[in-house]
């Protein structure tokens, strides 16, 4: 809920220049890409809950999702925020990315240890992050 409030704040500042708009678009695309990775892993956890998938498949699926999210995160880290408003947006996105990548790596570790039964709970813990990422992605399209 805290993050959503921040989001509303950020959205209130309409970006004045091309640079800011560009940064917002980058933030939006970043959120969209990581949301895609998260959804993939969550669907995988769903399959695990219903005993529809085994360890090899899920660890590839979740491992790739984690790898993609990390790559997107490091690309976004390399982008220079143009002003203070962008700094705040960056703070929010960074927060979300950190929680996504941490969650994904926990899922990957559980999966590789064969604890498939833990995946659904871990996935449930990521749903709010996913919602916020999607909100962000939609907002900064």
């Amino acid at each position: 809920m805290r993050r959503l409030l921040v989001l509303v704040l950020v959205a209130g500042c309409v970006s004045p220049s091309f640079n800011d708009r560009d940064y917002e678009l980058k933030a939006g695309n970043t959120a969209k890409a990581v949301a895609s990775s998260l959804s993939t892993a969550i669907l995988g956890a769903d399959a695990a809950r219903r005993h529809k998938a085994g360890e090899p498949y899920l660890s590839v699926l979740i491992g790739n999702a984690e790898k993609d999210a990390l790559a997107v995160q490091s690309t976004f880290d390399g982008v220079q925020p143009p002003n203070a408003a962008a700094d705040r947006l960056k703070g929010t996105v960074d927060d979300l990315l950190a929680s996504a990548t941490t969650g994904l790596s926990q899922m990957r570790i559980a999966c590789r240890r064969g604890h498939l039964d833990r995946l659904p709970a871990l996935a449930d813990g990521l749903r709010s992050t996913l919602d916020e990422l999607r909100f962000l992605a939609e907002h900064f399209q």
Partner: peptide, 10 residues
Amino acid sequence: QGIGVDHLDQ
């Protein structure tokens, strides 16, 4: 789910 396909597993 807004999933973009990048891998065969997806």
